[in-house]
Design a protein around this nucleic acid. Structure first.
Lengths: 171, 171
DNA sequence: TAGCTAAAGCAAAGTTCATTGCTTTTTGTG
DNA sequence: CACAAAAAGCAATGAACTTTGCTTTAGCTA
């Protein structure tokens, strides 16, 4: 039931369907539209629910190359490739247009913060000088996501440049 | 005519109207819905047009303090205060959800790029070492907008920190 | 199992949206 | 001024969305 609905939403978002409404989702999921109308306030609410589930599921293993520079480079590249996938873009946009209060406990940012923390901690234990975790979030993560949601180009070179920049902040 | 439409959209967005459709906008503007349907492809297109007009209208005079550090600090602060206003946030969100196609360049970013270019040029003419314009966009503008659209906190201190960070990139 | 409760389905009705052909008004120019 | 082109209004039509009351099914407990 709920799985079928999530799957339907995922498929529609993935296909880039121009029209994602309760009736459309319901038909795809093989359920009655009324069910959706009764459970969620509007389409965005459902969309965001699915988006959070999809965006926080980190199948990615965190890089551990032995140097923060390479860790960050690989990590930024993984993220860049991930969030530029069409369905990820749509999910991110859905999250943005969704309600403010729910997003504020932004699970996506939290995941990134934890990952950055882990890499920085390992680097410091190795005796490396590192930028701070907030710096990494502000100067690597933020520009990547900013580019995606505002439809600006994101590629390998860009991710690499951001990592290079943040590493110059090490004092 | 066109002014009335823009005004109507502005009011609706400002009020946080849950339902912004052509018929609704038309009624508010005192025009016929057909006019809207014929002129714009869909509501998002109109919404983005108004958003761009509102977001790029720079009544702000560009800081010119005699040092890039202070110019950037004031500039970042002006932007931070501006884009955290509720109606600005709504416009930004509207732009994000409207921007489905990767084709067009983001006018908001363009404005910021021009402003950054001007400040950097002046600084270089004074003989100051400066970060690059893309660096300023990536490490000051991007984090600010990212925080706004993902409902993360933005304040004076944050803007100041970003400017400080980007200035450490000067080689 | 019987019975109670919550969830899902069904169907009908109302509302809003979106499209289209045609008429009217405005605008700009010879 | 007059006329042609563009823009806006009007009205009718169909489609899609939303809501609602009621029925049916599923799940759970005594």
């Amino acid at each position: 039931m709920l799985t079928a609905i999530y799957t339907a939403v995922g498929e529609l978002v993935g296909e880039g369907a121009d029209r994602i409404s309760f009736p459309v989702i319901a038909e795809r999921a093989g359920v009655n539209p009324t069910t959706l109308y009764r459970r969620w306030d509007d389409v965005n609410a459902l969309l965001e629910e699915v988006a959070v589930a999809a965006l926080t599921r980190d199948g990615e293993s965190l890089p551990d190359t032995g140097s923060l520079e390479h860790d960050l480079a690989q990590w930024a590249d993984i993220i860049a490739r991930d969030i530029t996938r069409p369905e990820r873009v749509r999910y991110l946009r859905a999250m943005v247009s969704a309600r403010v209060d729910i997003v504020s406990a932004c699970p996506v940012t939290e995941t990134r913060r934890e990952q950055a923390s882990k890499m920085v901690r390992r680097a410091r234990e190795r005796g490396e000088a590192t930028p701070t975790v907030p710096q990494i979030l502000d100067h690597v993560i933020a520009p990547l996501y900013y580019h995606v949601v505002f439809a600006l180009p994101v590629d390998h070179e860009y991710a690499r440049r951001l990592v290079h920049d943040v590493l110059t902040m090490v004092r």
